[in-house]
């Protein structure tokens, strides 16, 4: 009978241990940044996989979020005769909350799981050991580039998401429901502030989410048992942990930034 070494026996202490290990892993990652400068090519390649390859889903989802938001707002606001504010409300809610949060959730599902599964399989097939043997530091070559790529890709994806949402809102509001084009834009431009909404909302939040999702994805990939079962669990954990972290962090950031 194979008796396993005693694990931390409850969910709380297990999660705490995970968070602690994850924090230590972050330090390792950051310490490897100078060494990973020579793998800039790899960072660019990862940017392609986590960023450019996520564009389609981000654009489609952004479009629909903008469209449905406008549809809902139009019907609520028309009760008060406030449909002229609909463009503004779409912009503000997308910039401050929906853009960063939905992009990060999609990013965790699309890119985070891929990174976890990829690294897990690399470990299962000895590729990480092979790199070690070829005197290539796997943290600097595999982990840090993926982390940095996620960090860079998230704000860019979020900007694309927001732009598509505005486009979708415009499509539904102005083209279909007949909100005045000038009112749509002028109310939006009157209320959206570059600093609070775009820098703090879109950029800062998505940067933070990008860091958290990439960290969790890379960490799970590197620490999961290198078996097919382990990789399967790790991808699930990436999505679950990322989603919780995104929403919790969103609350904290909103409280601090707004």
């Amino acid at each position: 009978m194979n008796v396993r070494a005693p694990q931390p026996n409850n969910v709380v202490s297990q999660s705490l241990a995970q968070i602690g290990n994850c924090g230590l892993f972050l330090l390792t990652l950051l310490a490897a940044i100078p060494r990973s400068f020579r793998y800039v090519r790899e960072t660019i390649r990862q940017l392609w996989f986590v960023g450019a390859m996520s564009l389609t889903i981000i654009m489609v989802c952004g479009l629909f979020v903008g469209m449905v938001l406008m549809l809902q707002l139009y019907h609520v606001l028309s009760i008060f005769g406030g449909t002229s504010a609909s463009g503004m409300v779409v912009a503000l809610s997308v910039y401050r909350e929906l853009g960063p949060v939905v992009t990060a959730l999609l990013f965790a599902g699309r890119a985070g799981t891929a990174v976890t599964a990829e690294i897990g399989l690399m470990r299962a097939t000895d590729q990480i050991d092979a790199m070690e043997m070829m005197a290539v530091d796997p943290i600097a070559y595999v982990a840090t580039p993926r982390f940095l790529a996620g960090l860079i890709a998230m704000p860019l994806l979020c900007c694309v998401f927001c732009a598509m949402a505005i486009f979708g809102g415009h499509l539904v509001g102005v083209t279909w429901l007949g909100v005045d084009n000038g009112t749509f834009w002028s109310n939006m431009t009157a209320q959206v502030d570059v600093h609070t909404d775009i820098v703090n909302g879109v950029l800062l939040k998505s940067l933070a989410f990008g860091a958290v999702v990439s960290l969790i994805a890379v960490f799970q990939g590197f620490t999961t048992p290198p078996t097919s079962e382990g990789v399967a669990y790790a991808t699930t954990r990436t999505v679950v942990a990322s989603s919780i972290a995104i929403l919790a962090l969103d609350f904290v950031l909103t409280a601090f930034l707004m």
Binding site: T125, D126, E132, M133, A135
Partner: peptide, 19 residues
Amino acid sequence: LYKLREGVGYLFQNSALLT
């Protein structure tokens, strides 16, 4: 260690090619 490994070739039991 990495300097040492540059002078060592290692053939893995299951190839370990970078996929």
